[in-house]
């Protein structure tokens, strides 16, 4: 039987008096794509570091690919691919050398490392830049190279810590497409993100984290139906014409610049407002997203 890629129970990480991860339970299935969604400081990166065996567990249980991170570190890391939040590519080396040298750390021969490097440069569409220095790459290309580097050992589990933070939309979509390909090949992906669209695009299942704890768990669609309505009506009133919308829809959420009205019929609710003579200065009807789930669960927005 294939061991579950990650099993954590009551997993806790403390730094002095600060508790970064506060007793979380996780269970990943082989081949699935799993996301941890939450704002900065939710404990996502600390969890990732414990799973990648470079951060000792304070308390609780953690098994990665069937092994104990403390005792079996090298054996676990041999089957792990890690894409850290900050690119740490080797700037003294070319793209191809980056991959080859890294493959050597995993014990590949130089000729196997060369073949692997060429294959992965192709996979990440960087083959034209093989002989260039890393410093000359754009942010999106650096991320792609970091992902290629994480794949040199054909890992069973790939950890991606905020893979697309700071990238422009085009670079993000190319990256998502490559990650989707990996997923199709059966590689287990564990990613953290604070973008709900990223979690919706890539994750089969996800946990929402806040202040070191898991506040919700499920598939993106499930979480939305469980915690919010199908649609959201966003309204903004002109100053001097504010109107208290409390009572409209199933729930309302006042934000600094607009008010959200959770309703299963956005257009209908808007029509009612207009009929009653409270036409908003601007309005938008959209589908509910994980952002709304997070807001409903914590009372705060995901990206501040």
């Amino acid at each position: 039987m294939i061991p579950k890629p990650v099993v954590a129970s009551d997993l806790t990480k403390r730094f002095d008096s600060f508790t970064a991860v506060n007793g979380i339970d996780l269970e990943l299935e082989p081949g699935e794509s799993f996301a941890m969604l939450g704002p900065n400081g939710a404990g996502k990166s600390s969890t990732m570091k414990m799973i990648s065996t470079v951060s000792p567990v304070t308390s609780g249980e953690l098994k990665v690919l069937g092994g104990d991170p403390q005792a079996d570190g090298p054996a676990i890391r041999a089957r792990l691919g890690v894409v850290p939040q900050e690119d740490n590519l080797d700037e003294a080396l070319t793209l191809r050398e980056n991959l080859m040298v890294y493959a050597r750390y995993f014990g590949l021969s130089w000729s196997a490392a060369g073949r692997k490097a060429d294959e992965l440069l192709g996979f990440t569409r960087l083959e034209d830049r093989a002989k260039d220095q890393v410093v000359s790459l754009s942010g999106g290309m650096k991320r792609r190279l970091t992902i290629a580097r994480a794949l040199v050992n054909e890992p069973d589990l790939v950890l991606l810590d905020e893979p697309t933070t700071g990238l422009d939309p085009q670079a993000r979509h190319l990256l998502w497409e490559r990650l989707y390909q990996l997923k199709e090949r059966g590689v287990t992906l564990l990613l953290t993100t604070h973008y709900m669209d990223e979690a919706e695009q890539l994750a089969d299942r996800l946990v929402v984290m806040d202040q070191g704890k898991i506040v919700a768990e499920g598939s993106p669609a499930n979480l939305i139906t469980q915690h919010v309505t199908k649609e959201v009506l966003e309204v903004r009133f002109a100053s001097g014409h504010e109107f208290d919308v409390t009572g409209l829809g199933l729930r309302t959420e006042p934000l600094a610049d607009r008010t959200l009205i959770y309703t299963d019929d956005g257009e209908g609710t808007l029509a009612k407002l207009v009929n009653d003579g409270h036409t908003p200065a601007s309005s938008l009807v959209r589908r509910a997203s994980l952002e709304d789930v997070f807001l409903a669960l914590t009372g705060r927005t995901l990206v501040e």
């Binding site: 065996t53 470079v54 890391r77 792990l80 590519l89 890294y102 750390y105 995993f106 014990g107 580097r149």
Partner: peptide
């Protein structure tokens, strides 16, 4: 950091 997430 990059080296330490390999078997090294």
């Amino acid at each position: 950091d990059a080296m330490l997430v390999t078997p090294l």
